[in-house]
């Protein structure tokens, strides 16, 4: 199956292939294959790979069920550590922001709302960056992708760290966009049912991060 697939990206974790066409879909699908890491101890490697494949599939499904725009899950092959999912026709947010043509306020509101929904079903993404958010070409809907580090958790702490990771991704990848992130949080607050404990935890997490410059 994977022979006819074209490698489109080697991420940190997995190789991502495009398989065209897939069944009756002319746009094809995305095949995400986690490969073994030679640097990791084999026991650790196997354990991590297995855990992450099933967590990714579960979280994708959970989000989809809650009406959040994520790639549709087609097939999971745990033995081959491979997931087949919808190929999103769109662009990643990182490029859109760098290009600077889009209305970033609209984007921020959409990001906040999508994250709120995701956290409301207790999915913690684990790797929120502007590379892992996309806009669909046809209806400009915001899609959350790459659930490779995601897991299910009710804890405000985990959700707060999730937001903190995104904040840091914003400040490192897109300097001078503090206002934009604030707007994301405002939107998050209006849409998320349990925003309060998460956002107050976020304050704590930020302070913790700051402390890290204690020693040389």
């Amino acid at each position: 199956m994977i022979d006819s697939a074209v490698l489109i990206k080697q991420g940190a974790e997995a190789r991502v292939y495009e398989l065209k066409p897939f069944l009756t879909n002319p746009n094809g699908c995305i095949v995400k294959e986690r490969f073994s890491k030679t640097y990791r101890h084999p026991v650790l490697d196997k354990q991590l790979t297995h855990r992450r494949v099933s967590q990714e599939a579960r979280c994708l499904f959970r989000c989809r069920k809650a009406g959040i725009d994520t790639p549709a899950l087609y097939l999971v092959d745990p033995e081959a550590a491979t997931i087949y999912m919808e190929r999103i026709l769109g662009r990643i947010l990182k490029d859109i922001i760098i290009e600077g043509k889009a209305d970033t306020d609209v984007l921020a509101d959409a990001i906040g709302a999508a994250l709120a929904k995701m956290h409301d079903v207790d999915v913690v993404h684990g790797d929120l960056t502007t590379s892992n958010l996309m806009l669909r070409d046809n209806n400009a809907s915001l899609v959350i992708i790459d659930f490779g580090l995601s897991y299910v958790s009710k804890l405000p702490e985990d959700k707060a760290v999730d937001l903190y990771v995104l904040e840091r991704a914003f400040s490192s990848t897109h300097p001078q966009t503090e206002a934009l992130f604030e707007r994301i949080l405002t939107s998050y607050k209006t849409h998320c049912k349990q925003a309060k404990p998460t956002l107050s935890k976020l304050e704590e997490v930020r302070l913790r991060g700051r402390k890290r410059s204690m020693l040389g």
Partner: peptide, 11 residues
């Protein structure tokens, strides 16, 4: 000996 493994994004 298996130990906890805690990676959160790039943190």
């Amino acid at each position: 000996v298996p130990l906890p493994y805690t990676v959160k994004g790039m943190d």
